[in-house]
């Protein structure tokens, strides 16, 4: 008996269900790990997925956790739709955070209505700038952006590290962290006594904006055409290079906003762990959300839920909170496999 893989697209009704199927399959897959550490998988998934939503405080914490993911997910989506494989959201986020810190430190006495827009603009510009070199290399020299954007992440991390161990080292504690930014530069809280801040609104606005641009404008359709078939797009008179450059720079800018968000909304100073891997997790969010703005929003909240749940499950069952990371990574692989397999069918041949 032999098997053969044939190209055969799955029916249309199945497509929106694929991320859901991927989530279920991932849970089955990772339940063996839960069993290995001696916990009951059903209990574990209860704490992962249900418990965080059972109280108002922890439900709001899910939104806090999903805020940077909404931004990095949007950033990655914007690039991927245009066929630009930006793996550098992490570095662009770090540069956005660095710019936000630099500006925030100077905002003493500046009113918030000026300080906050200045930081957002600075963070966006820094993210764009960090995305510029790989984008130019791709467009002018045909150098694969997957490699260049990925490598620049480490460079960005080293720059942050150098700043924190050099000029920005906290003069009081001597820890490798920057002094706190000016009070007027800190994002106001949306709900008192929670961590939910202005950044969440900004993230939602960005999601709505990318939805609008990608689905309602001529530029969005051109970008989609470039992403789906750059030769055909070029043939139709679309300026492919210009479109790719725009996709890359806007993507970098949005990732930069995620960096501003972490500095001005959560930490109030720069630390080397400022990103918490949100730049990379943005790739998971974009993929799981099938490069659709609403899908990305759902995926960001879902990953935010797992992040929050990872802490409650480790408190309740003594399971290492790393399990949350393992589940996220497994989810990415399973989703990618499912998205690929939807075009194929495995058949038995005689």
């Amino acid at each position: 008996m032999r098997f053969r893989i044939e190209r055969n697209p799955s029916p249309v009704w199945l497509r929106p269900l694929i991320p859901l199927l991927a989530i279920v399959f991932t849970m089955v897959l990772t339940s063996t790990l839960v069993l290995l550490v001696g916990a009951n998988p059903f209990a574990a998934y209860y704490y992962f997925l249900v418990e965080p939503l059972s109280s108002r405080v922890s439900a709001i914490e899910v939104l806090v956790k999903s805020t940077p993911l909404l931004l990095t997910g949007a950033a990655v989506t914007f690039a991927f739709v245009g066929g630009y494989w930006n793996i550098g959201a992490e570095g662009q986020l770090l540069m956005g955070a660095t710019a936000a810190t630099a500006i925030g430190l100077q905002m003493e006495g500046v009113p918030p209505w000026l300080a906050i827009p200045l930081m957002l603009a600075g963070g966006f510009a820094a993210g764009m700038l960090w995305a510029l070199a790989p984008a130019l290399m791709r467009v002018k020299l045909a150098i694969d952006e997957v490699v260049t954007t990925l490598l620049l992440n480490s460079v960005a991390f080293l720059i942050v590290s150098a700043l924190l161990n050099g000029p920005w080292r906290d003069p009081v504690s001597q820890w490798p962290q920057s002094p706190e930014i000016a009070a007027s530069a800190i994002f106001p809280k949306l709900i008192p006594r929670t961590r939910l801040h202005l950044g969440f609104i900004i993230a939602v606005v960005v999601i709505i904006l990318i939805w609008f641009v990608l689905t309602r404008t001529a530029f969005g359709l051109r970008m989609r055409a470039v992403g789906l078939g750059s030769d055909a797009a070029r043939f139709a008179g679309i300026h492919v290079d210009r479109t790719l450059l725009t996709a890359a720079l806007v993507s970098g800018g949005i990732a930069g906003l995620a960096g501003v968000n972490e500095v001005a909304g959560i930490h109030y100073h720069l630390i080397d762990a400022i990103s918490g891997g949100n730049g990379y997790t943005g790739i998971i969010v974009a993929t799981l959300g099938t490069l659709n703005a609403w899908g990305v929003a759902l995926a960001a909240v879902f990953i935010g839920l797992i992040d929050t749940g990872a802490q409650s499950v480790s408190r309740a069952l003594g399971v290492p909170s790393y399990l949350g990371g393992v589940i996220q990574a497994a989810l990415l692989l399973v989703t990618l496999a499912f998205l690929l397999l939807q075009h194929y069918r495995i058949r038995r041949v005689r």
Binding site: L221, G229, A232, A233, A236, G237
Partner: peptide
Amino acid sequence: RHESVVAEMTVAQNMALE
């Protein structure tokens, strides 16, 4: 033909694309 139409987009989109 695949050089001038985006195979994964719709008939209407391709007709308008130029």
